[in-house]
Amino acid sequence: MATAWIPFLEGRYSPTLDMWPIEAKEFNRIYKFYENLREGKFTTTKCQKCGRVAYPPRVICPECYSDELEWIELPKKGKVIVVVEKWGGVPICYEPPLIDAWIDLGKDSPVRHILSRMINCPPESLKEGDEVQLAVFDVPAHPIELKKETIKAERVFFAFEPVKK
């Protein structure tokens, strides 16, 4: 190895090139979202002072700036408003086609719409009005240096998938 070596070329981790969030509790204050996700729950924060539900979750209420927030569940099912498939110029981390849908979570949901990647979904099968549901999956872990050891921070994220008819 050269005397002044390049960390990237030796496989060292940098969050600047990580497409997934840094979910570990050592690095953010909304890690509960990811813990809930691991249990299959799709959640966000609600203000206990004024009742405002905000997505994505945060540490203050964007309405009244209270920091007294609670976690609430969002619907895990919705209906497709529009779906698109991307075949060209797909980032290296995905196999084409990359399928995404703009989803209506229903008029009773405090968060009306969500953009989501569609998984477990064959090309050209999904259409407007189809029912879709939350799907949680594992994403690559990354190292965290603690005082005496380096641990692997396991991670999950979500997409949506078609509800089987």
């Binding site: 497409m19 969030p21 698109v84 110029g89 980032p91 990647r117 994220f157």
Partner: peptide, 12 residues
């Protein structure tokens, strides 16, 4: 949004 694949904007 990035984990949903819309970094490159054509999908959106």
């Amino acid at each position: 949004d990035a984990p949903q694949g819309i970094g490159p904007p054509p999908l959106w």
